[in-house]
């Protein structure tokens, strides 16, 4: 079972070493946030172009050519640093309500990207230079902006331990969503987060 696996992973030397590290954890976390700024910044500029709100006289294809390399590079570093942050605190992250919400939103964002590139982008010739692209293009941009905004917020919320397994009692629905097994409340003994 995954809970057992992540519990074991967290006890490995590499994971606990990173969790208790003097510098590595903070450097990785800083990198994650810096590249998030670059990633979200370029995504937002592109999405605003799709919405017809920014760089309206620049062809969409040119915005893609200029911004996408930065978006991809930043995303790659974010995935690596994000995975390392998870690796440092695997079990708590896996059972964190906000982390799970963020993963679901990430899947939705990936789906949106796939739909955009498979269905919307091939027809770009018709609206490349349009100041305000057609409705379905704007829709893709709007959904992307909304999803990434929510992903950033839920990522930030992972730090809050309101729904953590060691804080009982919680509503049954919360314990279900976080796969927590509620035991007798003993708030002081396992407060680490």
């Amino acid at each position: 079972m995954l809970v057992g696996f992540f519990s074991w992973l967290g006890d490995t030397d590499w994971s606990s070493g990173l969790h208790g590290s003097q510098y590595a954890y903070s450097i990785i976390e800083s990198l994650h946030v810096w590249t998030l700024a670059l990633f979200f910044g370029t995504v937002a500029m592109f999405d605003l172009r799709l919405l017809g709100l920014s760089m309206r006289n620049v062809p969409v294809s040119e915005v893609v050519d200029r911004l996408l390399p930065w978006t991809i590079a930043a995303f790659a570093i974010m995935v690596i640093t994000g995975s390392l942050l998870f690796f440092a605190i695997p079990l708590r992250s896996f059972q964190n309500l906000f982390f799970r919400f963020k993963m679901i939103l990430l899947i939705a964002a990936a789906l949106n990207i796939w739909l955009f590139h498979a269905r919307v982008y091939p027809g770009i010739a018709a609206w490349d230079s349009a100041a305000v692209p057609p409705r379905r293009v704007r829709l893709a941009g709007g959904i992307s902006l909304a999803l990434w905004t929510c992903i950033v917020i839920s990522g930030r919320m992972i730090a809050y331990n309101w729904f953590d397994c060691d804080r009982q009692p919680q509503a049954d629905i919360i314990n279900f969503l976080t796969s927590c097994v509620a035991s007798a409340p003993d708030l002081a003994s396992v407060a680490g987060q």
């Binding site: 998030l36 937002a44 902006l145 905004t149 917020i153």
Partner: peptide, 9 residues
């Protein structure tokens, strides 16, 4: 939306 996420990070 942009402002909210900016303050979040």
């Amino acid at each position: 939306a942009l402002g909210f996420s900016l303050s979040a990070w």
